[in-house]
Write a protein that binds this DNA or RNA. Structure first.
Lengths: 186, 186
DNA sequence: TTTGTTTTGGGACGATCGTTCAGGTAATTT
DNA sequence: AAATTACCTGAACGATCGTCCCAAAACAAA
């Protein structure tokens, strides 16, 4: 068993991560359509061939980036639930706040996440990653009413994607009553 | 005032419509990413220059296609409501059926519609078109509970986009209880 | 040091892209 | 009939694309 990592591979992993981060920035700015070896390489400040070396194809790069993006989102959902729990809250405030943030300052990131959804619709390999934040929510939240929970999950997605085509992003206050309605048991 | 139409313009309009239809088929098959002057022209059976003649740029072609697609969707929603009304139904069965169809036989079309959403998120000019089916629903359906109605609209979008990343499309029977929940007043 | 492995990056190839242009045909107007 | 308008289309241009090749550099193992 080797504890000391190979310095070469360490460099490679680091650069791979940088390329993925750069790719995500390109997607946030110009969408999946704007992702080419050259734009990503320029964004990352590396030569063009570096992206082809670390990712066997452009498609691999896209898949890796979106999977990484999905993991980040799932982590974020995890901590949101954790935060709500520690406050003993039902989560309405936290959810509304997270939605408002996703549609405001983090709008580009949210668009990137829905590009992942659409790519997953065409590429089955991406579907587990796209469903990841749904799975996190499902596993962490106790849901006695199965149907109500499915409505909640669908409602979140609907609010987000509809918020993306609003002329101006809705505030947490505007979203609050809708989130309340979604969370209120009956 | 001229009643007789110009035969040349009539031909042009017809071909323009054919190109838009071909573009929609390409989007359904390969996504917006697969749309090029050449693929569209091949799909429509016209020379490549025909698409550049009738649409000043590829972007114009995409916008025109997605606006046309949105109009069709709005029309469909209109008739669904009309159908439900004529039966005196609350619409749950119609909605569940429409969703199942959108995620099954018409899956490609549904994906195209959500590509429109994402494009509208980046191009404000497309937003009125993307919101069209929402406006039709809003104007036709009496909603005494504003919040419940917003939840319903978001729920529909969420069910659709989540259905697109399911490994197999949900049936109308599976969707029915969720739609019931969304429509049930409280 | 020598040998082997991994990363780096400049250069280039063929393919495909959006778009332009010029010459043509058909329909309408004068 | 002549002029005008609108549509059609083959050919081609320059740009950009994904990807490959190969030699140099960095690093690890021998």
């Amino acid at each position: 068993m080797k504890l000391q990592v190979d310095g070469r591979k360490a460099r490679g992993d680091k650069r791979r991560a940088e390329i993925i981060e750069a790719t995500l920035r390109v997607i946030e700015r110009d969408g999946v359509a704007g992702v080419t070896h050259r734009t990503v390489a320029a964004e990352a400040g590396v030569p063009t061939t570096s992206t082809t070396y670390h990712f066997s194809s452009l498609d691999d790069l896209l898949v890796a980036t979106l999977i990484s993006c999905a993991r980040d989102m799932a982590t974020e959902v995890y901590w949101m639930i954790d935060r709500a729990r520690s406050r003993g809250s039902r989560g309405a405030e936290e959810v509304a706040g997270l939605l408002a943030e996703a549609l405001g300052p983090r709008r580009g990131r949210t668009m990137a996440e829905y590009e992942l959804y659409l790519l997953a619709a065409r590429k089955p390999e991406l579907r587990p990653a796209a469903r990841r934040w749904l799975d996190v929510l499902t596993s962490m939240v106790r849901h006695d009413d199965e149907v109500a929970f499915r409505v909640f999950l669908a409602g979140i997605d609907g609010l987000l994607i509809q918020g993306l085509i609003d002329d101006e992003p809705p505030s947490a206050e505007e979203l609050r009553p809708v989130v309340d309605y979604l969370l209120k048991p009956r």
